[in-house]
Computed example of a mutant assay.
Amino acid sequence: MALPEADRRRTRDRPAVVPPVRPRVPLRKVFRVASVACGIQFGWALQLSLLTPYVQELGIPHAFASVIWLCGPISGFFVQPLVGHMSDRCTSKFGRRRPFIVAGAASIIVAVVIIGYAADIGWLFGDRNRGEVKVAAICAFVVGFWLLDVANNVTQGPCRALLADLTGKINILLVVG
């Protein structure tokens, strides 16, 4: 079906809409940001591998260990959407995502130190006997564990968003042969 003359003229006179060209992000920069994501996965792996043995060493019954595992889903349910919302609207001179990544990384360090020294912190707060349940150490561990969960969630969302911001839309050519 041929276009009427007026419509043909309108399409010829109008310049083609060209999408803006995004500058290429150096692969080195993408790898640096991806290494943060790798570090977050190490944080999750640390949490998953050390929880049960360390909980048993502190004397926490198995029934309570499963309650401690609820920290992750509960904190992720609340923290990730909240941090995502805040990082989308952040106007820091360091960027939208970086302040949250740095704050989360610093919190991860603090949490790992608290978890690692939970028995010593418990001893400072009165856990003296070896045979009894170490209540102060357990409290320190649970606080450190919850902080680690929150910190991992604070860091993970903005890190993934930063990767998406840097790479933009990627068109992948799938060749089926």
Rank of each mutant, 00 (worst) to 15 (best):
W69R: 12
G104L: 04
A105T: 11
G72Q: 10
G104I: 00
P81L: 06
P81N: 02
K93E: 12
S75N: 06
G104M: 02
V102R: 06
G95P: 08
H62M: 11
V83C: 10
L70I: 12
F64L: 15
V83F: 09
G95E: 04
I108E: 05
F78G: 09
Q80V: 06
A63P: 00
S87Q: 01
V102S: 08
V79N: 04
C71N: 13
F94R: 13
S107C: 09
W69K: 13
A63F: 04
C71V: 11
I108S: 02
D88N: 05
I68C: 05
R96Y: 00
C71E: 08
A63G: 07
V67I: 08
A106C: 14
G95C: 05
V110R: 07
F77G: 10
Q80D: 02
D88R: 03
F100S: 03
A103C: 10
I101Y: 05
I109L: 14
G76A: 10
G84D: 06
P99Q: 07
C71H: 09
G76L: 06
V102K: 02
R97A: 09
R98Q: 07
G72H: 08
S107W: 02
G84K: 08
W69F: 13
K93Q: 13
A65M: 15
H62C: 00
H85E: 00
R98S: 02
H62L: 13
S66K: 07
S75P: 08
G84S: 10
S66M: 07
V79T: 14
F64W: 14
C90P: 01
C90R: 02
G104C: 01
H62S: 12
S75Y: 08
L70Y: 07
I74K: 07
R96P: 05
C90E: 02
A65T: 15
V67C: 00
Q80T: 07
V67R: 00
L82E: 00
R96H: 10
A63K: 04
H62F: 09
V79F: 04
F64M: 15
F77Q: 08
H62R: 08
G84M: 02
I109D: 02
V79H: 10
V67A: 06
P99N: 11
D88C: 03
F100N: 00
R98P: 01
